[in-house]
């Protein structure tokens, strides 16, 4: 039976959920969308960040969002190391680097998963904060604060990344390396160092995104597998490398998923992301916000 209230509720929750999807996909939009690195370990780094946030929250009572900010520099360094390793062992060795790179990043993902299990065990972990487990009443609609936090953080991250990539020298260099690496080399810049820096930025963003992940729901060491499909879907659907587009595509996905969950039956929800991706690629192969090459 159709209910306008339920539809409205689904749209509101869908927008917020979409923002959360956007926040966890932004890093991939840089590493895969701009740098062409097949970073399938992206969700594993995300879960690693969640556990780091859990550790700080559990043992030092640090607010999850503050903990996310605190681990950002560490994740930036981790990103620098991960890219250098990937570059030295795969990227510089030839044309099939992308295919072999997938194997490399799958390996990294498994190692991260095992390390988390060894350190924290296999149980679910969650964090505590005032905004978790409570909701904001808006008429008949109740909106969980944790989703509002995801909305605010995702919006802020998107704006910051967009400004960084368009207004700063390094940001423009990252966009340049995405468009024409050779041209950048002719200008006297080292594209590898720029890509390494960009990968560091992409991984640093995961510090905050990991905090959101554990704020929105409890995490376990294998949660990364649930996010591989969703995050790649969002980035490809947005058009590779578009930060604003990533957020909009994620919102579209979130709203579609939630409406299907609420109105048509939850079993159809997993098919939505990939059905939408196929539909978008059929009509606009470059993605919703990508430029035609």
């Amino acid at each position: 039976m159709f209910s306008f209230d339920l539809l409205l509720d689904a749209v509101v929750i869908g927008v917020l959920l979409g923002c959360f999807y956007g926040a966890v996909s932004l890093g991939l939009s840089v590493s895969f969308g701009l740098l062409d690195v097949p970073h399938v370990a992206h969700p594993a780094f995300l879960v690693l960040a969640s556990y780091a946030v859990y550790f700080l929250n559990e043992h030092y009572a640090v607010d999850p969002l503050v903990a996310g900010l605190l681990i950002t520099p560490v994740f930036f360094l981790l990103g620098l190391v991960a890219y250098r390793l990937y570059y030295e062992t795969f990227e510089k060795r030839g044309s099939d680097a992308a295919v072999r790179g997938i194997a490399f990043f799958f390996g990294v993902a498994f190692i991260i998963e095992v390390l988390i299990i060894l350190q924290f065990g296999v149980d679910q972990r969650s964090v505590t904060a005032d905004y978790i487990g409570r909701a904001w009443r808006l008429g008949d609609i109740r909106i969980p604060y944790r989703l509002l936090v995801a909305f605010a953080v995702a919006t802020a991250l998107t704006v910051l990344l967009t400004l960084y990539l368009s207004r700063t020298f390094m940001g423009r260099a990252i966009r340049a390396v995405a468009q024409d690496q050779e041209a950048l080399r002719l200008m006297g810049a080292n594209p590898i160092k720029i890509k390494q820096w960009a990968f560091g930025i992409a991984t640093a963003v995961l510090g905050i995104a990991g905090a959101l992940l554990i704020i929105v729901a409890p995490v376990d060491p294998t949660l990364d597998r649930a996010y591989i499909g969703r995050t790649f879907c969002v980035v490809v659907m947005a058009g590779l490398g578009s930060m604003g587009g990533t957020l909009v595509a994620a919102i579209i996905l979130g709203v579609a998923e939630t409406i299907v969950l609420t109105m048509f039956g939850a079993s159809w929800a997993p098919a939505i992301s990939f059905a939408m991706l196929l539909g978008v690629l059929a009509v606009r192969p470059q993605g919703l916000f990508g430029r035609r090459s």
Partner: peptide, 20 residues
């Protein structure tokens, strides 16, 4: 009477529909 898929991230909307 509803089934939800594995890896469902957010249950707010399902619970809202159930409550209704």
């Amino acid at each position: 009477d509803q089934a939800y898929p594995p890896n469902t991230v957010e249950f707010s909307s399902i619970i809202r529909a159930l409550k209704a």
